[in-house]
Amino acid sequence: MSGAAPSGATQHPGSDHPWLPDLNWAPVAPFWAAAREQRLVFPRCGRCGRFQWYPQDMCPDCRVMAFEWAEVSPSGYVFSHTTLRRSFVPHFDNLLPLEIGLIKFVHAPGVTLVTNVLDTPAGGVHIDAEVTIVFPEVAPGVNLPMARLC
C-alpha cells in the first residue's frame, strides 16, 4: 500500500493509553474515521466481495483493484485469545494483565480483528464466546474498536 509509514509511538497529551494508532496513515485512515462514528468498516472487493484485512492494493482472489470500505455488523466471536502478563510495548504495565482477543465476524469472513476484550472477569474469555465491538474514546478524538462479551 502507498503512504508513508505511521509515526509509531504516539504518546498523546491527555491520554493514559500507552500506544495510539496514527489516525492519518492513509491505508487505514477510513477505519479510524469510522470508529470515531462508532462504526466498524473493513475493505471489501467491489468485484468479488472478498473482505481483505489488512488492506492491500489488489484483491488476491479476482485480481482487481477495487476495494471499498464496507460497514459490517459489530457482532463477532472469539477465535483465540491470550492474557498479556508482560508487555513488549512500552508503558503498558499499568494495564496488565490485559486480555487480548482475535475476533472474527460471521458477516466478514477472512477478517480477524486484534483487540482487547473489555471488563472481563478472570477466565471469562473463551474460544467461540460471542462479543460485540464497542468504540471507547481512549484519547481525545481517538476511538479504538474493542470487544465486549455479550
Binding site: A5, P6, G8, H17, W19, L20, P21, D22, W25, P27, V28, Y54, T82, L84, S87, F88, V89, F92, L95, L98, I100, V114, T115, N116, L144, M146
Partner: peptide, 19 residues
C-alpha cells in the same frame, strides 16, 4: 517497524513474538 502492526496491533498490546 511494520506499519500495519504498529497501527493495528500495538495499541492493543499485541506485539512481540511470544504474544
Amino acid at each position: 517497524t511494520d506499519p500495519y502492526k504498529a497501527t493495528l496491533e500495538m495499541p492493543f498490546g499485541f506485539y512481540g513474538q511470544p504474544i
